[in-house]
Amino acid sequence: MIKRIKEIYEYRTMISSLVKRDLKGRYKGSVLGFLWTFINPLFQLLIYTFVFSIVMRSGIEDYYMFLFVALIPWIFFSTCLAGGTNCVMGQKDMVKKIYFPREVLPLSFVISQFINMLLSFIVIFAVMLIMRYTFNPMAILCLIPVMITEFILALGFTFILSAVTVFFQDMQFIMGILTMAWQFLSPVMYSETMVPEQYRGIYLIVNPMAPIIIAYRDILYYHQVPALSTLLWALAMGVGLFFIGWFAFDRMQRHFAEEM
């Protein structure tokens, strides 16, 4: 396993150039180019503000911000679930013809989505500055472990799903539906306090994304240090899933080239 990590490290340039290709290549040819990375979340935010402050007023103060700080991390996770399924199969030609540690593909996919999320956070911070939100430096610092937890969780899922998709291509469509269901089962559009109390315990235990999203909201919306106990549980699940995912991926990758 150490050998494997070492080998993946040797291919670090491949990871970074695949990430760069994805980030830069996406908007190549468009007039605004890389700016789209910022324009997209900004306009999303404007639309939410319009809808939820003027049309559908909810009881929550600054609902657009309440929603947005949860939606950005959720989009990262859900893209890994739905889009990540195809990250090995989509590079069929490469996998069939060239040797490289196959882990590079899911890894670079998740990293590039992660960077996209970070860029969206820049927009959030900019809006927060303009709207004169107060910053709690201690809380902001907690953002780092929260993001790492989410990253590990997303990577674990992407490992399993991308490998399974090679053998079973319905996976990507199944994940499209499951991801939607999962979004409504996570406290993205509502607060977890709205979940009936008798279900809340199990709600937080079964769904590792619930504590993660709550933590993001605590930090960016409520400006407070998140509850670490639930976050630790999410981290444990993330690490567990990561290793299971990697193990499963490693077992399946030997047969990738034949199955494609």
Binding site: Y11, M14, S17, F100
Partner: peptide, 12 residues
């Protein structure tokens, strides 16, 4: 060139 060579396992 950078992308292609990196896939062959070359570092930056």
């Amino acid at each position: 060139i950078y992308i292609n060579a990196s896939i062959f396992g070359l570092t930056k």
